[in-house]
């Protein structure tokens, strides 16, 4: 069975993603100078999460890959999140 032709991503798409990533980097640096107290970590992590999603989706081609790869990646991230959650429960309510 002939597979669908490999998707070729145009150069400019990668360039736009880079611009978005750099913009968010500066935004997370700017966030440090606004006093948000305990929320500044949360803010930084939100930016990092959006940035990683862009990298995974576009740079790592998940958008154009077989759905099972996307499902695996999401599943593994959820497993890791569960690991985080359980560890924190154990640590903070001991």
């Amino acid at each position: 069975m002939e597979k669908e032709k490999h998707h070729i991503v145009p150069y400019r798409v990668y360039f736009y993603i880079l611009l978005a990533l750099i913009t968010m980097t500066f935004m997370s640096i700017g966030l440090v100078h606004i006093n948000l107290g305990g929320y500044s970590v949360l803010g930084a992590l939100i930016f990092s999460t959006i940035k990683s999603t862009l990298v995974l989706t576009w740079f790592m081609h998940l958008k154009f890959d077989e759905p099972f790869l996307r499902i695996m990646v999401v599943f593994v991230i959820l497993v890791f999140a569960a690991l985080l959650f359980i560890t924190y429960l154990d640590y903070f309510f001991r």
């Binding site: 500044s40 930084a44 992590l45 990092s48 990298v55």
Partner: peptide
């Protein structure tokens, strides 16, 4: 290489941007 980039995306704010 993108994995190396991903790791840095989290390392940078967690180590350099604590204030």
């Amino acid at each position: 290489w993108h994995l190396v980039d991903l790791i840095w995306i989290f390392l940078f704010p967690l180590f350099y941007l604590i204030h």
